[in-house]
Design a protein around this nucleic acid. Structure first.
Lengths: 194, 194
DNA sequence: CGTCTATTTGAATGTACTCAAAAGCGGTGG
DNA sequence: CCACCGCTTTTGAGTACATTCAAATAGACG
């Protein structure tokens, strides 16, 4: 709970009573490795802020292939924005990759919070603007860089995630097969030798 | 100007005085075909709402290839969010594809507007949430669908844009070469015949 | 009609995928 | 301590998807 307040206060100021009101709307939950915070087909009823642990949000296509849209670690918001804002069934799954503790705010509480503490609109606007900017750059990089370049950028940008996550999930995040990522890694290690 | 108010009022209510204050901060401009609303390297100083016309936002990579991140038509906000929110040099260019009339709000005025009319935070939060959801889905589609499938989805989703924009730009938006898109179109027309 | 730009064609090439099988690796139980 | 199990990663051969380059064709505009 404290981590969330610290995170929010980086962007906006809250009075004590606002803090208390916010806390009254926030629920803490813990999930085990493998458990789903959100399943595709269900409505995303909560905004979820990761307190500790690690999750992935992925899409399961018609051929049964998983496509990871995002990893989530401490101090990140996760879920399916589309589903949450429209309260329609989600296309994405959010699954815990290890024991994960989160705090959640329900859709109804979120509406009330926005009404009672309008400054929160700003906080979430800033959060989502940043996320949108990053997602745009990701589209561009997928179109302008090779898989190898994207992999190298990934491990430089997210070294901790790169180490704590199985390779086949990194491949999925990059939009390539696990076999091809293995191939790329071989290439890289051979380049280093020579 | 009226179109902007109508668009905003779909999400939030404004009093007459708020409307007037907003109008005092909004500047209308017209660009000719080919002109740039924003050039990479410059700081994105304005939020831009398209009144009429058509634009594209693209990234120019190191090999000199253009990658279109978005088209913008009537009632769309365009620009480089990253650059605008951080007031650092933009990576993207926004260029008019035909004579285009826009209304703009500067960064400083935007800050004041947010302070004076906090409800605008909600409006822009909603706008950007939707855009983020769409961009996420685009990443997933790039990873889970073939170029042909993406092309068919594009012309179904944006039939008017598909007709009003040169093919090589659609190819760029889809992340493929103009030659390959031409090939795809040939395949499709041959399928229809048989 | 001529010029400029956009689109199409085709051949050669490269990047990434599929499928199948082998190897590695961590945990668990005998 | 070792054998086995399940899961992840690696390997390799064959293939498919998409690119590059060069040249021809088609369209748009003055």
């Amino acid at each position: 709970m404290k981590k969330l307040l610290i995170h929010i206060k980086k962007d906006i100021k809250l009075t004590e009573s606002e803090e208390h009101y916010l806390q009254s709307k926030v629920v803490q939950r813990t999930f085990l490795k493998g458990q789903y915070i959100l399943q595709a087909g269900d409505v995303c009823k909560n905004q979820t802020f990761i307190y500790s642990g690690k999750v992935r949000t992925f899409y399961l296509d018609n051929n049964g292939n998983e496509h990871i849209i995002a990893f989530g670690i401490e101090n990140w918001w996760v879920g399916d924005i589309c589903s949450f804002v429209t309260q329609t069934p989600a296309e994405f799954n959010t699954q815990c990759l290890e024991k994960t503790t989160v705090v959640q705010i329900s859709y109804e509480d979120m509406e009330q919070l926005y009404d009672e503490i309008p400054k929160l609109e700003r906080y979430f606007r800033i959060i989502i603007q940043t996320a949108y900017g990053n997602m745009s750059k990701r589209v561009i990089r997928n179109h302008s860089m090779t898989a190898k370049e994207r992999y190298l950028l990934f491990i430089n940008s997210f070294p901790e995630t790169a180490q704590r996550v199985p390779q086949y999930m990194i491949a999925s995040y990059l939009g390539i097969t696990k076999e091809f990522l293995s191939n790329i890694r071989k290439q890289i290690s051979e380049e280093i030798k020579s």
